[in-house]
């Protein structure tokens, strides 16, 4: 160790002659009786820490910001979901007859099988002007007409089979 230190000192003399001449004291001082008091201060702190009830990590203040962020994200997420649910897509059930007829027709929100809805919409919506087609009369056929039509159809089909 002594030999090693001498070699290092010699080496320091060679590479740093100014530095090697400086007193190795760093010039800084601690307050009076600092080292006499430090052990009891640390002891006291450790005892206080032992007495402190342990905060569950969930309530640790350093995680508060994270929790707030998560709560805010959840809040806005739920808010967006609620708003989306309120803007339900238009269906046969909930569509309003006050909606513009263009939108009603262009978006084809009418169920093809629900003929009554179509007729109802056409009769109630004054904006739609179809004077040349008497759709209502065509649709509301009497029972005899329907039976005759079905018999005709059945005859036609039988003929085709032979």
């Amino acid at each position: 160790m002594f030999v090693e230190n001498n070699i290092e000192k010699e080496s320091l003399n060679n590479i740093a002659p100014i530095l090697s001449k400086i007193n190795k004291s760093n010039g800084m001082h601690e307050p009076d009786e600092y080292f006499e008091q430090l052990p009891s201060i640390i002891q006291q702190k450790c005892n206080d820490l032992q007495k402190e009830p342990k905060i569950p990590s969930f309530f640790n203040p350093k995680y508060v910001i994270r929790y707030v962020m998560v709560v805010l994200l959840l809040f806005f997420g739920i808010l967006v979901l609620i708003r989306n649910n309120n803007d339900e897509p238009k269906t046969n059930k909930n569509i309003s007859y006050n909606d513009s007829s263009q939108d009603f027709i262009q978006n084809a929100n009418i169920d093809d099988d629900d003929e009554s809805l179509l007729t109802e919409a056409l009769t109630n919506n004054s904006e739609i002007d179809i004077p040349s087609i008497n759709l209502i009369d065509d649709i509301y056929l009497n029972t005899d007409d329907i039976i005759n039509y079905l018999i005709d159809e059945s005859d036609d089909n039988n003929e085709n089979e032979f």
Partner: peptide
């Protein structure tokens, strides 16, 4: 443990203090 801690602090406090103080400068 309390006695052991006080012995450990007394043994190493100066080395640790100066090791830190030379780096952070302020007491």
């Amino acid at each position: 443990p309390n006695y052991a801690l006080s012995l450990l602090v007394k043994k190493y406090q100066k080395q640790v203090y100066w090791h830190v103080r030379r780096m952070v400068i302020d007491h």
